[in-house]
């Protein structure tokens, strides 16, 4: 069972490679923000499954931080795109 959790954690973050490619070639800044938001979601899932793999429940809080701070970062960067941050 723990091996299954570890494999899921690895697969979830391996999807991030495709998103990093989009972050590299994205023509506009908003494309990169979309890729970054999805990377944060995948990282939250990966951290949850890695906590189940390593059997340490203290790792779980990092997933909550990932989920909530990807929202905060996305909204702040979007405000910057609208030129309302300055």
């Amino acid at each position: 069972m723990r091996t299954v959790y570890g494999a899921i954690a690895f697969a979830e973050i391996a999807i991030g490679v495709l998103l990093v490619v989009r972050m590299a070639i994205g023509p506009t800044v908003a494309d990169r923000i979309v890729a970054l938001n999805t990377v944060c979601t995948q990282a939250a899932l990966s951290v949850l499954f890695y906590a189940a793999y390593a059997d340490r429940s203290i790792y779980l809080d990092v997933a909550l931080w990932f989920a909530s701070f990807s929202y905060l970062g996305s909204v702040v960067f979007a405000r910057y795109l609208e030129r309302e941050l300055l």
Partner: peptide, 25 residues
Amino acid sequence: LNGAVMALSGVGAFSALLFVVLGAP
């Protein structure tokens, strides 16, 4: 330059994941 800042944010997210993997939540 703004795209480079987004990549910097990606560095932060991935290094947070690396810290979790290394056991420092």
